[in-house]
């Protein structure tokens, strides 16, 4: 089983293939289909006799799919990565939502923060992004990056001390 996510939705999926046939499990559902590769790199795929032609490529943990007029970026997540996401959602650890440049750090480690205080300001593609404290607390960790340094998406920006 692999966890494929798109935006806020996730799909536990598994694919078994034999020749040009495949079976696909998505959660409790089960599908049977066929596929064939075309010389221009596209793939013709059909499930229950409905056929479409699409493209698919991957890089790292991302898969890019074009099918039926929509381009998708699907993330492939292992169990470990999923824990990280849960950590982020708990609200104590704030990761960078973008790849960009560190514009400013407003506080230092040990400082007290109130909910919605701006802690870090990032810039990407000419836009500012302000990362705010999700609750009142004390700053436990802060990115060691200097002003003007590059920041990657998913990099830890700051963490609040446990309540």
């Amino acid at each position: 089983m692999e966890n494929l996510t798109l935006g806020s939705k996730s799909y536990m999926s598994k694919l078994r293939r034999s020749g040009s046939d495949f079976t696909l499990d998505v959660g409790e559902e089960n599908y049977k289909g066929t596929f064939s590769r075309k010389s221009n790199g596209s793939i013709q795929i059909s499930i229950s006799d409905k056929s479409s032609i699409g493209f698919s490529e991957k890089s790292g943990n991302e898969i890019y799919v074009y099918l039926n007029g929509v381009n998708y970026v699907i993330k492939r997540e292992s169990g470990a990565l999923k824990d990280n996401v849960l950590d982020e959602e708990s609200g104590d650890t704030i990761l960078s939502p973008i790849t960009g440049k560190l514009l400013d750090k407003k506080l230092e480690i040990g400082d007290s923060v109130s909910k919605n205080d701006v802690v870090v300001i990032l810039e990407a593609m000419k836009m500012e992004h302000r990362l705010k404290a999700p609750r009142d607390g004390k700053l436990l960790k802060l990115t060691p990056a200097g002003i003007g340094d590059q920041i990657k998406e998913g990099e830890l920006m700051f963490e609040l001390e446990e309540e």
Binding site: S8, L15, V26, Y31, S46, K58, I63, L67
Partner: peptide, 18 residues
Amino acid sequence: DFPDIDPKVLALALLGSK
């Protein structure tokens, strides 16, 4: 939000992803 993913998209993701 992005549309719900058709099973064919998931199959393509797992099949074709060279």
